[in-house]
């Protein structure tokens, strides 16, 4: 009897230790990765990094300014394509479709697209925008990112709009406001903070994407201000530099990695604080 009791206690102890250990495992990797990105990355950052374009292969120096601009351009364009479309589709789900058949199919498809392999989206955009129009372009990259963003925005917008109580909608309708006006000036306003947070997260996520850009915006070693030309991005440049043979390139890649990681983490943490402030 005593032995049985001790065995149960032991099993309990072992299992609980294992689960504390797994939490520690996850956190160790987070800090390990961050530590390396920050230490190697800081070593690579200097004024040239933010002001120069890349140096020819094998030569030292140069910077990532063109890639920073490229990432900004493509991300802003993707946001401009993806966010309005996503919010409107989310509006349909929360304000009109609700429990209809169409709405549930849209939800199902969005949830699958959220996790769909991003490289396949790259192949898709290559087939519709790069091959027929004869070349890689910033626009193609932006479209690929917008497609990746769309389902995330749809689902977040819907979730956030649903948090606005129906009584509020009914109150506005009872005052004689048309449905669209209720949606735009009551529901949107009530859900604004949540929607903005969701958009921030979606933008952060796509700004770190690489795979869909490989065959759409491709790469470029120089400044490019033409949206129909191949455009460098931080992520694709990291890929090329890290795979390359030169120590200098690896340095630059770490610098770019730091820039991307710090931005994405910062945005993620800020939006979490905003959401928490709302809940509390």
């Amino acid at each position: 009897m005593r032995l049985h009791y001790q065995k149960r206690k032991l099993a309990n102890y072992v299992a609980l230790t294992v689960s504390v250990g797994s939490a520690a495992f996850g956190i160790i990797f987070l800090f390990w990765i961050l530590k390396d990105v920050f230490t190697f990355g800081f070593a690579a950052l200097n004024v040239d990094f933010f002001t120069q374009v890349s140096a020819p292969p094998g030569e030292s120096g140069g910077g990532m300014a063109h890639a920073i601009l490229g990432t900004l351009t493509i991300t802003v364009l993707a946001t401009a394509f993806g966010v309005p479309a996503g919010i409107l589709a989310g509006t349909y789900l929360s304000e009109y479709g609700r429990k209809s058949k169409t709405a549930s199919v849209v939800r199902f498809v969005s949830d699958i697209l959220v996790s769909a392999p991003s490289i396949v989206i790259g192949v898709f955009v290559y087939a519709i925008l790069v091959k027929p129009f004869g070349g890689f372009s910033a626009i193609a990259g932006a479209v690929a990112l917008a497609i990746i963003m769309l389902p995330v925005v749809v689902r977040t917008a819907e979730e956030m709009l649903k948090l606005v109580p129906d009584a509020t909608r009914e109150a506005a309708l009872a005052l004689g406001a048309p449905h669209w006006k209720v949606t735009v000036s009551v529901v949107y306003r009530g859900a604004l903070r949540g929607i903005v947070t969701g958009i921030m997260l979606a933008v952060a996520r796509v700004s770190g994407e690489t795979a869909p850009l490989l065959f759409t915006s491709f790469n470029n070693s120089f400044w490019n201000f033409n949206l129909t030309e191949p455009t460098a991005t931080l992520t694709v440049t990291i890929f090329n530099y890290a795979m390359g043979p030169y120590e200098d390139w690896h340095q630059m890649a770490w610098g770019a990695a730091l820039l991307i990681t710090a931005t994405v983490l910062l945005v993620t943490i800020i939006s979490r604080i905003i959401v928490r402030g709302r809940a509390g």
Partner: peptide
């Protein structure tokens, strides 16, 4: 939220 390219490079 860490981009997958960072995982790859690290």
């Amino acid at each position: 939220s860490i981009p997958s390219i960072i995982y790859g490079m690290w």
